[in-house]
Design a protein around this nucleic acid. Structure first.
Lengths: 210, 210
DNA sequence: CCTACCGATCGGTAGG
DNA sequence: CCTACCGATCGGTAGG
């Protein structure tokens, strides 16, 4: 091994277009989602960016760092939604807070779809993935607690266990990442309305609603 | 390709424990789900079975064949559910057929959870995966058509586009594979009831139901 | 000659 | 940012 100067500052006005770290991350996340993390090689990423493989390592320290940054992005956004529901909405009923969490979660899913998609596919194959799973578990526990509170208030049906309700509700919300496309037929607000309506009122036509 | 005698009967009383093709497949699917297909090596599978890697090739022709068999299993089961809804239930309303499809889908998901989980994670990275995606798309189209019919009957709400309803409904159903465990707290019928109740009637408590 | 394997290694490619 | 490579490991197969 030869010693090597660490990270020269990015030159302007010379050399190639100048991809920055964010552009590499965006392209990486797009590929990770399209082909899967393991099936994506750093060579694939280089080709996508019009660089050589070694050139990527000028911008990022490695493949797993790219994954970690994407997972942190998704987790930070979702954590903000959940934290807010408990902190800033303390005066409202659990039912109202749950509706708000569902709506805001949908908005995060569509606004940060690529990184959230990666998060939902994490299997725990590395330290980075295990750390993400731990944060995700914390979120799931908070959401389940909110559902339990809403059932206890009498706002939600009590003929199904609250943990099961929570899993199915957020299973539906999370399924958005499988098909939602920002340039598709449905805009953000429309999807949020549809999810909230179907989740809380069901998809059957009712004669009377409360 | 060379012609080949199909499946010799398993010998008893001599040689090693005698893993058969089905046992290798079961172990492979379990590993594919736990670690991901690409992250699972044939060496991992060999270790799990207590064999050497070359020994696996006595039972199966390769890694991708294992994936293909699992995907076919899931697709065959789901295709049967959908086909039956159109063929054997022609006299019933679309709404009734849709409810039945949801219930039967839940049952297939929990009975064939490992292979269905693999199916839902396919990205199209190979011929085997592309073929599976094509069959899956056929299923999704049939299900969407059934939802459209149920809306046209007036049985389902018409304030949300039918394609969106279909995606959210089966997104919830499919999310089962993320957490359902056969040895867990919920049995098959309980989960099927919960999904159907929440999907069609919603999770809010209503004063009146139709 | 069969089966059920083993120790060793093939040609290629991964991340770095 | 490239050419030239590394240690390791991949899926799959050789002879015995």
């Amino acid at each position: 091994m030869t010693s090597q100067p660490a990270e020269p500052p990015p030159r302007r006005g010379r050399g190639r277009p100048g991809h920055d770290q964010a552009a590499v991350l965006r392209a990486a996340v797009e590929l990770f989602n399209r082909k899967g993390y393991d099936a994506t090689s750093m060579g694939d990423l280089a080709k996508e960016l019009g660089l050589t493989k070694p050139a990527i390592y000028h911008h990022v320290t490695g493949k797993e760092q790219l994954l970690g940054q994407a997972l942190d992005d998704a987790l930070d956004e979702l954590t903000a939604v959940v934290t807010e529901a408990f902190r800033e909405q303390a005066g409202r009923s659990a039912y109202e807070r749950l509706r708000e969490v569902v709506r805001r979660s949908v908005e995060v899913l569509v606004a940060h779809q690529p990184s959230v998609t990666l998060l939902l596919r994490v299997r725990g194959n590395s330290e980075v993935e295990l750390a993400a799973l731990e944060r995700r578990r914390w979120l799931d526990d908070r959401l389940a607690a909110l559902v339990t509170d809403a059932v206890a208030e009498g706002a939600l049906r009590d003929d199904v266990p609250a943990t099961l309700v929570s899993r199915l509700l957020f299973g539906m919300v999370n399924s958005l990442v499988e098909w939602y496309r920002p340039d598709g037929a449905y805009d953000r607000a429309m999807v949020a309305d549809a999810v909230t309506a179907i989740a809380f009122d069901g998809l059957a036509r009712h004669e009377t609603r409360v």
